[in-house]
């Protein structure tokens, strides 16, 4: 079991969190091409990399963003997900 250092609660078990996918900006629905939309929905670049990911803390009902290296599985940053975050992706 991994542990996550939450900015307000400290060390919490990862089992309290639910994965919510990588942080990705949804393409504009009106102008998106079929291929770009299909890639957005189905294609995940699996190469080792540092990703920003959505993680939901179930006991408090709060969404977080983790910065995680998919090769080492090390979580390097944990922050609250704030409104309008999609624009940062």
């Amino acid at each position: 079991m991994k542990f996550v250092t939450c900015p307000s609660l400290g060390r919490r078990a990862l089992s309290e969190f639910t994965y919510g996918g990588r942080l990705e900006k949804e393409p504009d629905q009106e102008s998106v091409s079929e291929k770009a939309w299909t890639d957005y929905v189905f294609y995940r670049n699996g190469a080792p990399q540092t990703l920003k990911e959505w993680w939901y803390h179930r006991p408090t009902g709060i969404w977080f963003l983790f910065e995680r290296n998919t090769l080492t599985d090390r979580i390097t940053q944990v922050e609250f997900a704030n409104r309008g975050i999609e624009n940062e992706a």
């Binding site: 949804e26 009902g61 969404w63 409104r83 309008g84 975050i85 999609e86």
Partner: peptide, 16 residues
């Protein structure tokens, strides 16, 4: 639970 979780996430994403 999953619907509530998804809706919370979308509220954040859409900045509503």
């Amino acid at each position: 639970d999953s619907a509530y979780r998804l809706i919370q996430k979308k509220v954040i994403e859409w900045g509503l």
